[in-house]
Amino acid sequence: MDTREDKLISLIGRCALRDQAALKALFETVGPYLNAVAYRILRSEEAAADALQEAFLQIWNNAGSYRPHLAKPLTWLASIVRYRALDKLDSEQRHQKKFTSFGYDEVIEAIPGNNSPEAEVQNSQLNFHIHRCLTTLGENIKRSIELAYLHGQSREEIAQTFSTNTNTVKSWLHRGAERLKQCLEAV
């Protein structure tokens, strides 16, 4: 097994046997290339990383169905990534049509407090900073935060909305909260 193709076939075969070291080696070997495939379709580092993660989960679960005589290993791997990226792109486009932009003024207006001129100025400034910080987030993270914190949806509901898994949504919410915190602290 001295060619790259033979190495990939071997790694896929070992994944079929549930060898986690093989999955790691496979990711290290072809991950950057497959990430580039996803990025060319999605044009977003975050979305490409999500598609790649979903693809490797599918590769892990379906490695036993790979047949070297039907497709070269890199072709098989790239097609899985391509389909995951296209699914994500389709889902994004459906959700963009479904959602309208949320009025961030409503967030600040909902904050209880007195309506003195000073409070209104502070609320206006806070509204500006929240809006600015939210616009720095990726679309999936931004919409997940809106759905969770402004509309009260659970992680499971958000995962269903985006046709993804709950752990991905949990990651989006965690990353988004950290980035918002950092952005607002910098103000």
Rank of each mutant, 00 (worst) to 15 (best):
1 M>A: 14
3 T>Y: 04
4 R>T: 06
5 E>K: 00
5 E>V: 07
7 K>H: 07
9 I>G: 01
10 S>Q: 12
10 S>N: 10
10 S>L: 12
12 I>S: 03
14 R>Y: 11
14 R>H: 10
15 C>L: 04
16 A>I: 03
16 A>T: 03
17 L>F: 02
17 L>E: 11
18 R>T: 06
18 R>L: 10
18 R>S: 12
19 D>H: 02
19 D>T: 04
20 Q>M: 11
21 A>V: 04
22 A>L: 01
22 A>I: 01
25 A>M: 09
26 L>A: 01
26 L>G: 02
27 F>C: 00
27 F>L: 05
29 T>I: 05
33 Y>D: 00
34 L>I: 06
35 N>V: 03
36 A>H: 11
37 V>N: 00
39 Y>W: 10
39 Y>K: 01
40 R>T: 08
41 I>N: 02
41 I>L: 05
44 S>Y: 01
46 E>S: 13
47 A>E: 04
47 A>Q: 03
50 D>S: 11
50 D>Y: 09
51 A>D: 09
51 A>R: 06
52 L>E: 09
54 E>H: 00
55 A>P: 02
55 A>E: 01
57 L>A: 10
60 W>D: 01
63 A>V: 07
63 A>Y: 07
71 A>L: 12
72 K>D: 10
73 P>V: 05
76 W>I: 00
78 A>R: 00
79 S>W: 07
79 S>I: 05
79 S>D: 08
80 I>Q: 00
81 V>W: 04
81 V>G: 01
82 R>F: 15
87 D>G: 07
90 D>I: 07
91 S>T: 15
91 S>I: 09
95 H>R: 15
96 Q>K: 14
98 K>W: 04
98 K>Y: 07
99 F>E: 10
99 F>G: 06
101 S>D: 15
102 F>I: 13
118 E>L: 11
120 E>H: 00
121 V>T: 11
122 Q>K: 13
123 N>C: 05
123 N>G: 13
124 S>P: 00
125 Q>R: 14
126 L>W: 14
127 N>F: 11
128 F>E: 13
129 H>M: 13
132 R>W: 13
133 C>L: 15
134 L>S: 14
134 L>R: 02
135 T>I: 13
136 T>M: 12
137 L>E: 11
138 G>C: 11
144 S>K: 05
144 S>C: 09
145 I>K: 02
145 I>D: 01
145 I>A: 04
145 I>L: 15
146 E>P: 09
151 H>M: 12
156 E>D: 13
156 E>T: 13
157 E>S: 14
158 I>G: 00
158 I>P: 00
159 A>H: 07
161 T>W: 05
161 T>I: 12
170 K>G: 15
171 S>L: 15
173 L>H: 05
174 H>S: 14
174 H>P: 00
178 E>Y: 14
179 R>Y: 09
180 L>V: 06
180 L>I: 12
187 V>Y: 09
187 V>R: 04
